[in-house]
Amino acid sequence: MNNPCAYEIRVEGHLTDQWTDWFNGLVINFADDGKTTLHGTLADQSALLGVLNKIHALNLTIISVKRSDPEN
């Protein structure tokens, strides 16, 4: 739980990739269904919570948070 892991966070709305730096370097993809995916590696759970807090601070609606298997 305290090792770097790949995460995928989906939020409501279209976010441009200019926000990448703001979200600790997560890659930002906009899907056709009007939702945005942020994905990338985060150092640990604290970093994850930091990103979630930032998303919350911008009043973005979080739809899901997934951790990818570290092996893959």
């Binding site: 709305g13 279209h14 976010l15 441009t16 926000w19 009007g34 945005t36 911008l58 009043n59 973005l60």
Partner: peptide, 8 residues
């Protein structure tokens, strides 16, 4: 009509 993140 836009889907873009409101604040942005």
């Amino acid at each position: 009509g836009s889907n873009v993140y409101i604040s942005e």
